[in-house]
Design a protein around this nucleic acid. Structure first.
Lengths: 214, 214, 214, 214
DNA sequence: GATGAATGAGAGTTCATTCAT
DNA sequence: AATGAATGAACTCTCATTCAT
């Protein structure tokens, strides 16, 4: 592996460690769920001993929390930016959000997080609540805001913006689930971007004002 | 024991027992998840001792399996019937399926099952697979079949039936999740039947052929 | 061991169990101290598994508490009775208390408790406080009360009753310690009753009023 | 390092280090007991890292041993000197020893040591033995020697010198305990010197020959 | 059919101790 | 001389499961 030197048994990557732990934990949680994952598993997966984990996080639960907090924040920020960027252009804004979702869905490890949070919602309600506030509520607001604007601009039929927002988000969210929970059970799913495209298309047709009326 | 003796004041409904266990288990699994539920909890909830549980089911996992199998089968059958009933009438068929979903969503205990299955999919892949085959795949087929027929009848635009099916199902499925995982975090959700109505409306508009062209 | 029957592997002594556990725990705590005693040790010492201990006590600390509470209460009551019995007779009252101490000191397991409590006082201050209130303070009061009465009756010199009480109690208390902490290091200590006798004798001489003045 | 260079602003007192460790350890042991004290605690208390502790002592137990050995030796020597000084004067000798005890009792950190040793006697019998030999036995001998001489000189009644010695020492020893184990539970104890005074007074009265017989 | 009692096999967590630097 | 990083071995405690009755 290293041809030039006898490689010290132990390399120092001190700042990277917590992140490595979180990576390993995410892998394990994804594969077996939170409860069925043993600290031992996480430890081994990042080449540490069980005890060393406790140098970085005070408990298993803390790892879970840190995982969610650490990985979700950047997502949220990116999404927010995307929407803000497409301010007046309603369809552009929707595309931006959708595009952002595609980026998430394309990254297995990112895509797994929401699933994990929802799966463990019963045991960690505060985490679910934080996720909801940070991601679900915000995304819903952004989208229904855009839809509202679309209606005002005469682009869309006068639909309930919130319900419509769900119509757009739900297929995307479910797609994440299917990819993971039913991996291998469905005939080669389409790629996230295809799914996004089809979803947006149907959605826009569904809410479109009748432009064809002369 | 003695068929001629004066009726006992209270009969032990021995046949109901396994079902009582499953009920209790479902409650507990819903509330805390599979892993965090102790056999003790289930036992107490149905007025038995831990040991007695093992008279009816050989293991905790078996309870989970029995739960899913026992509760989902009837659902599936009912749904199937609903679709078959509305054979030629495409919109009627869709309405039937949607109506069926409303019935599920209105029953907390039924609605919880899919959530549970998906949450534990990582740990019990075969259960997830069974659920998928029995429910997801079947519903998708039924719906995309109807959509295909709708297209053939000129009612719908030529969309991809499978994708369209997901567009219809996903908002409903997500609604189940929201009601549970985010209970209390969202401003009083609409009732399942309202959600179903709005979803179907948007969906039909989205896939409708342009009837307004003269 | 049992020639008449194949003896069931497990005999049922359900009510005795908690007490057996406490006995075993006391033995172990005496021998190695609280911290160095493993639940495993206690379990084995009373023929149970570690897990079974938790059927009877919710934690190691709870065992310690129960031990102190359960064993000390009877002692306290007995002592109290002894004093009350010798109401007017000052010397008789002192003898009664001393006699009571002899009974404690003669029973290794009883004698060990105070030592244990004091040893672990730093870690379990509330237990130490309870012990102090229940035993130390009460005994001090009883004795200094008797001494006060002795002074009033002209039997004793006018000494500080509290200080005098300590003069009487301290040698007895220390004797308990020596027997245990320095077991084997001192040339065969005298028996508790001898120690008590000598201590009381010296004490009475020390506080006696000068009767020999004509 | 360089004897001619401009004096470093602050020298590292390297020789003091082991003693600083022992100080810190004593504080911690006093506060929480030996077992409940973590090396981490000791390290932080003397501004070192855990690992550095092992530069000075090979183990936690070694710290305890060094503590006892290092702090007790000087005590013992001082006491011995005190007694030897008051050779013929029996009461003077007793006063010297008592005075020595007062000095110990006035110094919280010194007073804590015997308590610590006795508390951990079960786990460290050799330390207890060393303490016994070095302190208890010696003090007892010194005192009973003095008492014997007092009897020979006709100052004291013919009591058992050993028992009498205990009568004198025990209240003092117990006072140490009370101050610590029951800190705050007893109404402001008297100062060590007062306690010593009262104890000696009662003791002398108790063993005094009847001087008042004409 | 039912249970109180019991347990084996771990779980997460802690800590004295070591080691590369 | 000193330490941050790491760990092995132990700890307390839990829980699905069993068994004698």
């Amino acid at each position: 592996m290293n041809r030039t030197a006898p490689l010290p048994r132990w390399r120092r990557r001190p700042d990277a460690r917590p992140d490595e732990v979180l990576d390993a934990a995410l892998d394990a949680f994804m594969a077996h769920g939170y409860a069925a994952t043993r600290m031992e598993d996480v430890a081994r997966a990042c080449g540490l001993s069980k005890a060393a984990l406790y140098l970085y996080f005070p408990s298993k639960e803390a790892i879970f929390r840190a995982l969610v907090a650490g990985r979700l924040q950047p997502l949220r920020d990116a999404a927010e930016t995307a929407v803000a960027a497409a301010n007046e252009d309603v369809v552009g804004g929707l595309r931006a959000i959708i595009g952002f979702w595609v980026k998430v869905a394309d990254d297995e490890r990112l895509a797994a997080l929401p699933r994990l949070v929802l799966s463990e919602a019963a045991q960690f309600p505060e985490i679910a609540a934080a996720y909801h506030e940070m991601m679900v509520a915000r995304a819903s607001q952004a989208i229904s805001g855009l839809i509202g604007r679309g209606i005002a601009q005469g682009l869309f039929r006068p639909v309930d913006p919130e319900a419509a927002a769900r119509m757009l988000l739900a297929p995307l969210a479910m797609d994440l689930w299917r990819r993971n929970a039913f991996a291998g059970l469905e005939p080669a799913s389409r790629s996230p971007s295809e799914v996004a495209e089809m979803t947006l298309d149907l959605f826009l047709k569904g809410v479109a004002a009748r432009q064809d009326r002369p």
